[in-house]
Simulated assay, not measured.
Amino acid sequence: MSETDVIPGFPAGKAGRPYRPCVGIMLINQDGLVWTGKRDDGKGQSTYDFAWQMPQGGIDPSEDPRKAALRELYEETSVRSVSYLGETENWLTYDYPTEILADTRKGKFCGQAQKWYAFRFEGPDSEINVLQPPEGHSAEFGEWRWERAANLVNLIVPFKRDVYAQVVAIFAPLTA
């Protein structure tokens, strides 16, 4: 039995590979804008096309997905001042493109299955620190901004756009 067999509703993988269990976070401020960060390529810059994304990350073995979302949010943004707003009913999936599949996690996963959570940001913007993440975590973002939810789909890499469109639609009442 694999770890994903005990996660309720977790989708089956494809082509003999499982999906990587992950979470995604839509962090919404008091004005209904959504936090988005520009990915750091590991060299303190971003040379990626479509480098902007919401926080996301893997679920550790036996970790509750909502707790994973709060952990990932903290590790990537330093944010802890949040209140829970909601979550997606189902896992949302995307497949890695062929050119990424072999290099991503050594081809172990066909893509990601994500449970998405919406949180209201309750703190001051000064709480957000992507350049010096807490507890020795490496920076994943080089900069950040608040963005209208409707713009998010065009900022993310194309193979994740369907998931972003679903997330934006599901949480639209929270950003109005």
Rank of each mutant, 00 (worst) to 15 (best):
Q56V: 05
M1C: 08
V167R: 02
C110V: 15
T77C: 05
T104H: 09
E75C: 10
Y117E: 11
G142V: 15
K115R: 15
V79I: 13
A149C: 02
G9D: 12
V168A: 06
L174A: 10
P65D: 06
G86H: 09
Q166Y: 10
A172D: 12
A113K: 11
T98H: 12
A169K: 14
N154I: 00
E3F: 12
E127R: 01
P133M: 01
L33W: 01
T36R: 12
I128H: 07
S78E: 08
K38E: 12
R80Q: 13
Q132W: 11
V79M: 06
I100G: 00
C110Y: 01
Y96E: 01
P97D: 03
S138C: 10
K115A: 08
Q56P: 00
R20F: 13
P133T: 07
T88V: 04
P133E: 06
D49S: 14
Y48L: 10
L174N: 07
C110S: 03
V34K: 04
R80F: 12
I100W: 13
V6M: 10
R20K: 15
A176G: 13
L131V: 11
P11Y: 05
P133S: 02
L27I: 08
C110I: 14
G9Y: 07
L85S: 03
F109N: 09
E127K: 01
Q45K: 15
M26A: 11
R120W: 00
R161W: 00
M26T: 10
G136W: 10
G86R: 09
F159I: 02
T77H: 04
A139D: 04
S138N: 15
F10A: 01
Y74M: 09
P173F: 05
E75W: 11
